[in-house]
């Protein structure tokens, strides 16, 4: 039986009637058309579908859309805050070539948002640890680590 849910995504309120079995990842992509959230493995291993729910990085393929009822979700589309300029983390990835095919990138970016808020000066080990939950099959991670280091600097330099 379908249920009506109301979810805030990137600051905008969406009301939809959904089946309880609909995954949050599919809700974002198919119900409200935000296809920036990628679906890789659909069993919580690859991290491509990572979004923020109430500011915490979570796997959207392991949540049902009904569980997001009344919650705040942020996807990669919300990173620019509506200002149409790159978030410092996106800028870091662009500058340092932190991606090749880009499939894993949205999940990595969303993992990094809370991480860099809590760890403004991460060590390389800490960066590799937090990235362990996101699988990239192109880069070998070296460029991603450099991108995160640059992103941390850019966030600090960014005028408040």
């Amino acid at each position: 039986m379908e249920q009506t849910i109301s979810v805030s995504v990137n600051g905008r309120q969406y009301e939809r009637s959904v089946e309880p079995r609909l995954l949050l990842s599919d809700f974002l992509r198919h119900e409200i058309g935000l296809s920036g959230t990628h679906v890789g493995c659909e069993h919580g291993v690859c991290g491509a579908c990572t979004v923020l729910m109430d500011s915490a990085a979570v796997r959207s393929c392991l949540l049902f859309a009904v569980q997001a009822n009344g919650r705040d979700v942020t996807t990669v589309e919300g990173l620019d805050g509506g200002h149409e300029e790159l978030h410092p983390i996106q800028h870091g990835f662009w500058e340092k070539h932190g991606l090749q095919c880009g499939f894993c990138t949205p999940g990595i970016l969303m993992t990094l948002v809370p991480f860099l808020e809590e760890n403004p000066d991460p060590t390389e080990d800490e960066i590799r640890e937090v990235l362990s939950g996101n699988i990239c099959r192109c880069t070998g991670y070296q460029k991603i680590v450099e991108a995160v280091q640059l992103s941390a600097r850019l966030i600090k330099e960014k005028p408040a």
Binding site: G44, G47, T50, A57, V58, R59, L63, F115, E129, G133
Partner: peptide
Amino acid sequence: MPHIAHTQIRNR
């Protein structure tokens, strides 16, 4: 605790 999966998993 940090040995359990990844931060995204431990968040839920």
